[in-house]
Simulated scan of single mutants.
Amino acid sequence: MTVRLGTNPIAWSNDDLPELGGDTPLETCLAQARQAGFAGIELGNKFPREPGALARTLAPHGLALVSGWYGAELRFRSVDDEIAAMQPHLDLLAAMGCEVMVFAEVGGSVQGLRGTPVADRPTMSEAEWRDYPAKIAAVAGHMAARGVRLAYHHHMGTVIETASEIDRLMAATPDSVGLLYDTGHLAFAGDDPAAVAERWAGRIAHVHAKDVRPDVLRRALAERWSFLDAVVAGVFTVPGDGCVDFGRALAPVARAGYAGWWIVEAEQDPAKAEPLAHARIGHAHLTAAARALGVALAA
């Protein structure tokens, strides 16, 4: 088993709150990601969306494009309409040689609503739960034909947030619907990341290694903060700077023979959490975790 370490530009420039790191040049992000030791990076809002231009942007830094977020509205769209909406993003990822797409259902989501408590998120009705698995399986099949696997991103503020919702989605869908395993979102949701990984290790298609600051999380829950307010306050951080036990959280992934990317993804205010310093902390912590688990890291 070989794993590669990557990062996400959200530590430098936030997609949901563009004022966080809005003046940070993309070149700074890419240069510092490489300085921290990462081999790849996910898409952010400052990246070119044309394959040639994107390849020329990444090449001087020796970074591979790993994947990129896609916010679906499959709850409210037909399969054909969702495929049409996602096609430009899928084309870009396929052209760049990405093996997975970060796919999240954002229909009705409150994750981007700063005035809405994350606890007031939507849930799917029983009727939706009967229909949704077949719809997402059809989308996953279309993606697989292009050589890109759907990696479903459970996310705070959305209809698939908790371990029980992940269990229900995975149990109702074929293996073509992979799971994006995000340690930070599971911890925020009050669930045990390692337990989820133990149940679904064979379906994990992508890993977001995100840590959580427990003091900030307690306040966010007690005071009914929005997701974005929690982010600005620092609920998330890089591995090694919070309360998640990554040795335990990644052990089921390692035992399953996962071969892919571990992505350090910690949306923070770069004015409060200096990106390069935190990127180095995250890289070092995952490197140590891989060594302890007997996981080989590729350059």
Rank of each mutant, 00 (worst) to 15 (best):
Q111I: 15
G141P: 01
E19Q: 13
E198A: 09
M96D: 10
R146L: 09
D245M: 02
A145P: 08
A119D: 11
D23C: 08
A273W: 13
H142W: 12
K272A: 12
G44K: 05
P18L: 08
V148T: 09
T173V: 05
R219K: 15
A95P: 10
E265M: 00
D91N: 14
I166V: 11
Q111S: 13
A104K: 09
L43F: 09
Q35K: 14
L20N: 00
L58N: 10
R114D: 12
E265R: 01
A201M: 04
R199A: 09
V212H: 00
A194S: 07
I10Q: 01
F103P: 04
P18G: 05
H61D: 03
A220F: 08
S164I: 10
P9S: 05
G40R: 00
N8T: 13
Q32M: 07
A187M: 13
L250K: 02
Q87H: 14
L150F: 02
V238A: 01
G37D: 08
R291T: 14
G97A: 10
V106A: 14
G37A: 06
F246D: 00
S164Y: 10
G294Q: 02
P48W: 07
E105M: 05
T2W: 08
P275Q: 02
T237S: 12
A197C: 01
Q268H: 08
A145T: 13
G294T: 06
A144Y: 10
I83T: 11
V207E: 03
